[in-house]
Simulated scan of single mutants.
Amino acid sequence: MAAISIRDLCVDFGGAVLAVDHVSLEIPSGQFVAIVGPSGCGKTTILNHLTGLLPVQQGQIAIGGEAPRAGSPRVTYTMARDCLFPWRTALQNVCFGMELRGVPLAEREALARRELERVGLGRFADAYPKALSHGMRQRCALARGFCLESEVLLMDEPFGALDAQTKIQLEDLLLQLWGETRRTVVFITHDLAEAVALADRVVVMSARPGRIVADMAIDLPRPRHVRELQRDPAFLQLYSQVWEQLERGIRLSETQAEGAMA
């Protein structure tokens, strides 16, 4: 059984905008999948359906054989913004998801402190978000996500707003944390180099309406280090191939739009 199964998903907003058009995707347990595509192609919309935040209009979605539902313990969702509560300390923010799931106080604080140490924020457990840099806040959000023992981790451009150096540091940290747990990951990004460096597969979507135009295996050996990969000819070749598929998807959408207007 696939960890995630999407079959013929179509999403139409208000009868006026077809956002996702017959998307099908099977993701086995433990695989790291990156989805790339132009803005507005439905990447985040797919994640919101996987969480159960949006109801399925047409098609089928299953997480571990079950229909997705909001608040399911099977899924952890890390968004583009860190979404830390300003009135909570770093420790209390990391504890929040476990608190909602009913984890006892002593247990959740011990787990939160462990994850804060792993992301390099052990000394900042009692700091409030206003005292943390953007990169530190994203580390805190990562710790919060990895404290939840979910089968599936959904990530929507979690490093998109960071500077280049901090971004590479957090990408390496994510690879390390994922390597220890091997959860099923669906990772949304506009950064093609990031997608190739992190993922086992890169799924390329066309411009709206979003369709899958390529599903590429990334056969780079693991463990990986993002900075070192940037000098690897195999990495550069895969990066170029993903770019070619993205451009093909954009051209395909433009041609179809012109045909519809003719």
Score class of each variant (00 low, 15 high):
Met1Ala: 13
Ile4Val: 14
Ser5Thr: 15
Ser5Gln: 15
Phe13Lys: 04
Phe13Ala: 04
Leu18Thr: 10
Val20Tyr: 00
Val20Trp: 00
His22Val: 06
Val23Asp: 02
Ser24Asp: 08
Ser24Pro: 06
Ile27Pro: 11
Ile27Thr: 08
Pro28Ser: 13
Ile35Val: 13
Pro38Thr: 00
Lys43Arg: 04
Lys43His: 03
Thr45Val: 12
Asn48Val: 01
Leu50Asn: 03
Thr51Glu: 04
Pro55Trp: 03
Pro55Ala: 10
Pro55Asp: 09
Gln57Thr: 05
Gln57His: 06
Gly59His: 13
Ala62Cys: 09
Ile63Asp: 02
Glu66Asn: 11
Ala67Ser: 14
Ala70Trp: 07
Thr76Ala: 10
Thr78Leu: 15
Met79Arg: 10
Ala80Gln: 15
Phe96Ile: 05
Met98Leu: 15
Glu99Asp: 14
Gly102Arg: 08
Val103Arg: 12
Pro104Phe: 09
Leu105Ile: 08
Ala106Met: 05
Glu107Val: 13
Glu109Arg: 09
Ala110Asn: 05
Leu111Gly: 02
Arg113Ser: 06
Glu115Ser: 02
Leu116Gly: 02
Glu117Cys: 09
Glu117Thr: 12
Leu121Val: 01
Arg123Tyr: 09
Phe124Trp: 13
Ala127Pro: 00
Lys130Glu: 05
Lys130Thr: 05
Leu132Asn: 01
Cys140Arg: 00
Ala141Gln: 04
Arg144Val: 11
Val152Asn: 03
Leu153Thr: 06
Leu154Trp: 05
Leu154Thr: 09
Met155Ser: 10
Asp156Ile: 09
Asp156Ser: 11
Gly160Thr: 06
Lys167Thr: 12
Glu171Lys: 02
Leu175Ser: 05
Gly179Leu: 07
Glu180Ser: 10
Thr184Met: 01
Leu192Thr: 10
Ala197Gln: 12
Ala197Cys: 12
Ala197Ser: 14
Ala197Trp: 10
Leu198His: 06
Met205Gly: 00
Pro209Glu: 08
Pro209Cys: 03
Gly210Phe: 00
Ile212Gly: 01
Ile212Thr: 04
Ala214Val: 08
Ala214Cys: 09
Ala214Arg: 12
Ile218Met: 10
Arg224Met: 10
Arg227Phe: 05
Arg227Ile: 09
Glu228Ala: 15
Gln230Asp: 04
Asp232Pro: 09
Pro233Lys: 11
Phe235Cys: 14
Gln237Glu: 15
Tyr239Val: 06
Ser240Gly: 15
Val242Ala: 06
Glu247Ser: 08
Leu252Asp: 12
Leu252Met: 13
Ser253Cys: 09
Ser253Ile: 01
Thr255Ala: 15
Gln256Pro: 02
Ala257Lys: 12
